[in-house]
């Protein structure tokens, strides 16, 4: 399995860098434009969560680890921010801790919907780790059956 790892500061301008870097790494798997767009959106959601909710007003490091093999990309986005107090509440569509800032509360729902697998681990005061994968060619596999 080919692997890569990125570390960057929790600044909003790094959101576009992170999603495009992951998309570029996935290219050898020949994803469709729509599959690639799903991955970019999911990475953007996870990285934005780390910046806005994980670190908030403070600054810290965000790590993105990726592996590709067997037509699948595996992605882990982790931060050492404040963590999630109530995980099941955070996973509820439209729930947000920052409604006054127009956050939609749809980030986790989009990650779950757009990726083949998704899980999140979080420890209050220690950080959050989102693990997800996307199998490319899922539709082609179905057609071949």
């Amino acid at each position: 399995m080919n692997k890569m790892s990125l570390s960057f500061l929790s600044r909003p301008e790094n959101e576009v860098f992170a999603r495009n870097a992951v998309a570029a790494f996935a290219l050898p798997l020949n994803p469709t434009l729509s599959e690639l767009s799903d991955v970019k959106t999911a990475v953007s959601e996870a990285v934005t969560n780390a910046i806005v909710h994980g670190y908030g007003e403070t600054e810290g490091w965000i790590k993105v680890d990726c592996g590709i093999g067997d037509g699948t990309i595996h992605i882990t986005v982790s931060d050492s921010g404040k963590g999630i107090e109530d995980l099941s509440q955070a996973l509820t569509p439209f729930f947000t801790t920052l409604p006054q800032e127009e956050h939609s509360g749809m980030g986790f729902t989009i990650m779950q919907t757009f990726m083949s697998s998704f899980s999140v681990r979080s420890q209050k005061g220690e950080g959050t780790e989102v693990t997800m994968s996307k199998h490319f060619g899922a539709r082609a596999d179905e057609d071949a059956r």
Binding site: T48, S104, G105, G107
Partner: peptide, 13 residues
């Protein structure tokens, strides 16, 4: 060319 859930929040706002 790209939109994530931030765009949803923006449009609903």
């Amino acid at each position: 060319r790209f939109m994530d859930s931030t765009g949803i929040g923006f449009l609903i706002g």
